[in-house]
Nucleic acid binder design. Structure first.
Lengths: 341, 341
DNA sequence: TAGATTTGTGCAATCGATTGCATTTTTTAT
DNA sequence: ATAAAAAATGCAATCGATTGCACAAATCTA
């Protein structure tokens, strides 16, 4: 017995002694095909185990039914959650989701983006790599008019849909919280300043200081890549200052954690003697001791919204671009609450 | 000016006044085309911004260059890491990765798997849903001879490539560790027993008891879905027993964590009065207080291996199936080390 | 220089589904 | 019963890349 191939509409047509066009139309429930034939075809298709070949219809329709998503790292909780949200919405709408990760490398990002173009994704959702500072590879999408959505790490100079959380406001509020708790000298661990995300967090920090009449002290701001090691080094730097800070706002929870461990191991009490807050609400920040105050970003929602935006562009040919700013939520925990309420 | 379409090989052919076949061959570096023509074509393709339409070639070649991956939940660290590993290997090999999540629901899994068939994935990598107990939707792959790889949550009755960690051994060793630490009555929080993963962890636990001449006490084993709440409830149950255990081996870190918090909040000292160990090495287990002893699974490696297996099947038409058992690693932390070494 | 090779290109069919237009069949009106 | 209108179906081209085979051009042989 030779290999059994997948049945096609032609096989169904032959079986029923009708034309392939009729089969095609019937399967799409085209009203021009009589009810009777449609049912007959549906049944035959079912019994023959027919499944439409999407490569063929995609080719003909010039539509891949695929959404691409590019993130720095898939196994980062925030990004994984965004992907999860995208998948949920896309799947319901009948789209497939192709993923790839840049590992925060510029060259890989370029390579990925080109591959996404090659497979003719109907739209691309992307959060750019830390390394990325030029954007020709993304401008192609605008030129070719392929829907493009940036999330979290956006590119201001490209006009398209964008979704961010209110980084500035989040940073402002949590810095204000530190001030409210009576901390006097507040340091900041800032992330790469080529990313608006981290620019904004820094801005929120500075605005909170300004609003409370606290002078901005550049020596209290450390800029790095926000790894565990970076957090520890920053903490070490802070503690070595002649007049060290008594609290620090970290641009992510990872550095908040390693800084906290460093400070704690120095025998400094948290939050009594030193306050720490992070950003992102990583799962661990809730369960470490002391638990870390932070800003929660609605990652899953962000993914859903990103998918909705891109689907609108794809299907309704929405022409206007918006920038969604999703609200962040301040979550206060042990690491910064030294006042009793 | 009307819409500028993507150039095709026909456009290149027209431009150079040659045939599309020649262009096609030249772009594939077919030696039958002269060096000179090949270069000419390469240059024209470049200047025209030509990108092969993969839908067209996929259709013709009956190959989608796509690997599907189905996991219960994308934003679970373990699964996200596996996906990350798959993506890395697949991308290097020129394959795209399409993802979908079952949310541990049987019906969604079926729906996803059918959609993967519809887009004609060249292979599927899957970890089945907790709910899944019948497997017709997966047997289709065997029938149609589409490469299939199970990882972590496998289906024993389907003969194909599989990758697991040594759950039984991991469970055995960490239970043995508890015994070595002098714990006498060791409980177990078991996961859904329709999954081999959790069967094996339970088996390892029982074997360790047996080896040490400890009678198996059914009242010390709780089976549930391993959520945070389940862990807390289990702990509550254990502590309410007339003769409660003095240690517990939890089938995942999530229940280990919530059980630990419950026990700790009861004022019981960990590890002095009560030992806790988990499974999976979730990122948080290292940073909570006390840190949780656990079994690390090489998730990223698992993803890489899964991709390699499936690529071998796809490209070299490898006929034999193997079951890779990756070694797990025992990571001892504060929650179970009460003896000084 | 004619004939045999080798090398380079092109023709046309193919992959499977879709669709404008033409054609056939059925229904309705007169 | 017959023309006109409506409904159902089929033909053939198309989407873009690939490839077996045929044919043409260049090179070699005697």
């Amino acid at each position: 017995m030779h290999k059994k191939l997948e049945p096609t509409i032609h096989d169904i047509a032959r079986e029923l002694k009708i034309s392939a066009s009729t089969v095609s139309r019937a399967l799409q429930n085209n009203p021009r095909i009589s009810q009777k034939t449609r049912e007959k075809i549906a049944i035959t298709a079912e019994t023959m185990g027919y499944r439409p070949n999407s490569m063929a219809s995609n080719l003909r329709n010039k539509k891949s039914n695929t959404i691409g998503i590019v993130v720095p790292l898939i196994n980062r909780y925030f990004f994984a959650s965004v992907i999860s949200g995208v998948e949920e919405v896309a799947f319901k709408a009948g789209y497939n989701v192709v993923i790839s990760q840049s590992n925060d490398l510029y060259d890989k990002e370029i390579s990925i983006v080109h591959s996404m173009l090659a497979i003719r994704v109907d739209g691309l959702i992307i959060s750019i790599a830390m390394q990325t500072t030029t954007f020709d590879h993304l401008k192609i999408f605008r030129k070719k008019n392929i829907p493009l959505v940036f999330f979290d790490r956006i590119v201001p100079e490209i006009e398209t849909n964008k979704i961010v959380v209110d980084d500035c406001m989040g940073a402002f509020r949590i810095t204000q919280h530190l001030i409210d708790q009576g901390y006097q000298r507040i340091g900041h661990i800032a992330g790469p300043q080529n990313l608006t995300t981290y620019q904004d967090r820094r801005k929120g920090y500075m605005e909170a200081l300004a609003k409370n009449g606290i002078a901005y002290d550049e020596s209290l701001v450390v800029t790095n890549s926000l790894t565990l090691e970076d957090g520890e080094k920053a903490a070490q730097y802070f503690m070595g200052l002649p007049d060290p800070p008594d609290a620090v706002f970290c641009s992510n929870d990872t550095t908040a954690l390693s800084a906290m461990i460093y400070v704690r191991d120095k025998g400094i009490r948290i939050p009594e003697d030193f306050g720490i807050v992070g950003f992102s609400n990583e799962p661990f920040s809730r369960v470490v001791t002391p638990s870390i105050s932070t800003i929660a970003q609605p990652a899953f929602l962000m993914g859903q919204k990103a998918a909705e935006l891109i689907l609108n562009q794809i299907e309704h040919k929405e022409k206007t671009f918006k920038t969604l700013v999703l609200p962040s939520e301040m979550i206060l925990r042990e690491s910064s609450k030294r006042k009793k309420d």
